[in-house]
Design a protein around this nucleic acid. Structure first.
Lengths: 351, 351
DNA sequence: CTGAAAGCGCTTACAG
DNA sequence: CTGAAAGCGCTTACAG
C-alpha cells in the first residue's frame, strides 16, 4: 500500500490560530490581529506571524469568523437553470461584481419549480448569506414581507410575478424595448406584423406584448388577434407558432418574437417552408443572446445588458447592506437596446 | 417616514436555538436534538419544538453547525467563465447532483487567469468546502501534493494541464472521439481533410489533433501540414482560420474543428465566400453545444455529455469524502458520441 | 428521555 | 503593543 497524501484529511485537524500562536509564542488574539492586519500589532510581529501562517498552509475558517462577525461575505443567487444562456450571462456579471467586492456566490437552481425555489432560498438563509438575488422568479411577490426578506435583502432580477411592495428589483424595461423593436419593423414599412409570445404566464411576455400593441396603436395599425401566436420560450415552440402563422391566408410580413430562442425556431420554420428571411419575412427577437449574432441570417433583436444587470443587482445588494436606502425599496429599470442585424428588411410587396 | 420591514436586520439578532429553548422551556440541547430529528427526544416534545421553530422563522446557522461538525455540505466549483456554454452545462449537472445529495455549490470564475484560479481556490478553502471541482484548469498539475489537495479532495474536469499524480479527474476521451469524427469524414469519401485547432496550448487541442492524425494514418491518408490552421476556440478565430484554409490552391473538402464555436466561425467564413455546406465543403465540430442543433446547416459534431460529466464529478467527490478509494486517484474517461447532422456529406468531386 | 458542560475557531471589548 | 476572557450558535459525549 503506497502512502497516501489524503490521509491527513481523515486523521488531523486543520491548523488553527492557536497552533500558530504556539509556534510564534504569542497569544491567539495577537495572531488574529496580525492576520487581519490590525495596526495594533508591531510590524515585526505581524510579519513573523504571517510567515508562519503561510508556511503551515493556514487558512482562516470563514465559519468561525462569520459566527462572530455575523456576516459571511457571501451572496446567494438563484436561477431557474444555469443552462439558460440568459441566466449564465447574468450570473457571470454577478460573479464578477461579487469578486470585486470580495464576496463569494452560492449558486442554486430552482428548475422553474416554485417549491424548490422556496427550498433553496431557505438553504441560503441557513448559510446566512448576506443577500440574495433571484432571477426570473415566479414567486417574487411572496418574498414581500416574508421572513426571508426581513433578515436578508433580496433583489429580484427580471421578476416574473410583479408586486411593488417591499421588493427590490432590477428589471429590463420590457414595454419600451418591445415598442422600440416594433417601431423598427413599422419603420421598415411593415403593416402585417405578428407577435410570437410565450405561454407560461410570464410578466415579461405580457409586458412585451403590451409594448408591441402600443407601438401598433401609435402607428395607427389595427391589431389582429390572428397575428398572435404562443411558443414556449424555446426554438421548438417558436417553430410551431411560426408554422401556425404561416398557415394563415394572408401571413404576416414581419414577426416580433418574445425572445431569441423563439426567434431561432421561427427562422427554422420559415426556412423549412422554403421562404427566406428577410426577403419574404422579417424576424426580430429579444435578449441578444450570443447565438443571435451567429444565426442565419444574423438576428435583429433587443439587447438586454445581461452582465450589467448582474452587476447592478450586486451593487444594489451592497448598498442595501451598507444601510443606504434601507427605508424604501429600490426598483431599477434598465433600457433595452435595439440591435439591427440582417433578419429585418422592408417588406417585398408594398401595400 | 413609513415603517420599514428592514430595520430588524440592523437592530436584532436572529432567533437562535436558545430563544426557542426558552419558549419551549427545555434546554437548548433538547432543541438541537429535536430539530435534527434525534430519536432520543419524545415525539411530542419534538413536535412542539418544531412548531415553535417554524412559527418564529428560525433558521439554524450553518456556520455554527459546521464549526462543530467540521463539514459544510458545500462544494466549490471553479470555471473559467460561466458565460461559456460548456461550463454552464457542466455546472448545471453539478448543481443538480449536489442538490440531490443536499450539498450547496459555491461558484467561482477564474477568468482563465491562473493567479485568480489559485486565489479563488484559496477562498474556497477558507470557506471549508468539502470538495472542489475545477473545470478546464490550466494549472491542474500544480494541485498535486498542494496544501489544498491535502485537506480537500479536488476533482478536475477536462483538466488542461495533465499529470497523473495524485489528481482526480473526469475527462472526455479526446483522442478516440476525435478519431471517430475524422473517420466519419473519411467514411464519407473525403481525403482532403483539414483540422482547425486552438492556439492556447490546451491539452484537449493536442489530444484532438492527435486523434485526427491517428485516423488519417489508419486510413492511409497522408497528413498535410498546410491543412492545419489555428483559431482561438471562438467563432472569429474559426472564421479567420477557415479563410486561410480556403485561400489554399487546393482547399480541403472537409474540416474538423476543435470545438463547435470554432465550427460556427468556419461555417460563416464558408458562407461568406459564397460556398455551401455540405455541398462544397463538410464541417464537423466538437462539444454539441445547444447552438450546434440550430446552426445552418445543423452541425455534425462530437457530443460531450456535459451534464453527466458534472454529475460524475460530484459523485466522485462524494465517494472520496466517504473515504472510498482514498488510496488511489480516480481518473474517469468518458467517451464522446458522434452526432451526425447536416453539415457533413460526401465530397462533390470524386478523387 | 433530558440537561449541564465542553468545545469547534475565530473576533473584540477590556485591562494592562 | 499584547493577553485573558467572553461569546458567536451550534453539537455531542457524559451523567442522570
Amino acid at each position: 500500500m503506497k502512502p497516501s497524501v489524503f490521509c491527513k484529511r481523515v486523521h488531523m485537524r486543520r491548523t488553527s490560530i492557536k497552533d500558530i500562536a504556539r509556534i510564534a509564542e504569542v497569544s491567539h488574539s495577537t495572531v488574529s490581529r496580525a492576520l487581519s492586519g490590525s495596526p495594533l500589532i508591531s510590524p515585526e510581529t505581524t510579519e513573523r506571524i504571517r510567515r508562519i501562517a503561510e508556511e503551515s498552509g493556514y487558512r482562516r475558517s470563514a465559519a468561525a469568523r462569520s459566527l462572530v462577525t455575523s456576516r459571511t461575505a457571501t451572496i446567494g443567487v438563484v436561477v431557474t437553470t444555469i443552462a439558460d444562456p440568459f441566466a449564465a450571462e447574468v450570473v457571470n456579471g454577478i460573479e464578477d461584481a461579487a469578486n470585486d467586492h470580495d464576496y463569494s456566490v452560492i449558486l442554486a437552481s430552482s428548475n422553474v419549480d416554485p417549491e424548490r425555489e422556496m427550498r433553496v432560498v431557505r438553504a441560503l438563509e441557513e448559510r446566512r448569506v448576506d443577500g440574495i438575488i433571484v432571477t426570473s422568479s415566479r414567486v417574487g411577490a411572496s418574498y414581500a414581507g416574508s421572513f426571508s426578506q426581513k433578515w436578508v435583502p433580496i433583489v429580484l432580477l427580471n421578476n416574473q410575478h410583479h408586486s411593488n411592495e417591499f421588493i427590490h428589483s432590477v428589471m429590463i424595461d420590457n414595454h419600451s424595448a418591445s415598442a422600440m423593436a416594433t417601431q423598427h419593423l413599422i419603420g421598415l414599412g411593415h403593416r402585417r406584423i405578428a407577435y410570437i409570445g410565450d405561454r407560461n404566464g410570464y410578466d415579461s411576455d405580457t409586458e412585451r406584448f403590451d409594448g408591441f400593441r402600443a407601438a401598433l396603436d401609435q402607428a395607427g395599425i389595427e391589431f389582429r388577434p390572428d397575428y398572435v401566436a404562443h411558443g414556449n420560450g424555446k426554438p421548438d415552440g417558436g417553430a410551431a407558432a411560426m408554422n401556425a402563422l404561416l398557415a394563415a391566408s394572408r401571413p404576416p410580413t414581419a414577426v416580433f418574437c418574445y425572445n431569441d430562442m423563439t426567434a431561432l425556431g421561427a427562422l427554422r420554420s420559415i426556412r423549412t417552408r422554403g421562404l427566406s428571411v428577410p426577403a419574404d419575412i422579417s424576424v426580430a427577437g429579444f435578449d441578444d443572446l450570443f447565438v443571435a449574432e451567429y444565426s442565419v441570417p444574423p438576428l435583429t433583436t433587443v439587447r438586454q445588458p445581461m452582465r450589467e444587470m448582474g452587476w447592478l443587482a450586486v451593487e444594489t445588494l451592497i448598498r442595501l447592506l451598507a444601510g443606504v436606502e434601507a427605508e424604501h425599496n429600490v426598483n431599477i429599470k434598465v433600457p433595452g437596446e435595439l440591435v439591427v442585424r440582417e433578419s429585418t428588411a422592408p417588406p417585398k410587396e408594398s401595400l
